[in-house]
Amino acid sequence: MFEIQPMNADDYRQRTRRSTLMIALIFLALAMALSTAAVTLFGEPGGDNLRFNIGGVFAAVLVMAALMRKLFWHQQWMAPAVYSWQLKRSLMSITNVMHHLKAAVEAGDPDAMKLLRFYHLGLSQMHQLDGNSSDDAQLHREMEQHQARMQALGIDIRQTRLDPAWLDALKRTPR
Rank of each mutant, 00 (worst) to 15 (best):
A24R: 09
W73P: 05
N49T: 08
S84N: 07
G131S: 06
M1S: 14
L34I: 11
P174K: 09
L162T: 15
S35M: 04
V97D: 00
T16R: 12
K114D: 02
L34H: 06
A112R: 07
W77T: 13
L50T: 15
H120C: 05
D10Q: 13
A33T: 10
E144D: 07
A148F: 00
Y119C: 14
S93E: 06
D11Q: 12
M7D: 01
L25Y: 04
M126T: 14
V105R: 09
S124C: 01
L115M: 11
V97H: 10
R141I: 10
P80G: 09
L67G: 07
M1E: 02
A103C: 08
T173C: 08
S133T: 14
P164C: 07
D48N: 14
L34P: 08
A81G: 01
K88C: 05
Q147S: 10
G122E: 00
N53A: 08
H127L: 03
R13N: 03
A81H: 03
R175G: 13
L62M: 07
R175Q: 07
D135L: 12
N49F: 01
E3R: 15
H99I: 12
R15Y: 02
K171E: 03
S90W: 01
H120R: 09
Q125L: 05
R175W: 02
D168A: 15
Q75R: 11
S84V: 08
A60E: 00
L170D: 00
R117E: 01
R175S: 10
D130L: 08
G56Y: 02
L153I: 11
P174F: 02
E44M: 10
A137Q: 10
V63R: 01
A65P: 00
R17T: 15
Q14T: 14
G43K: 01
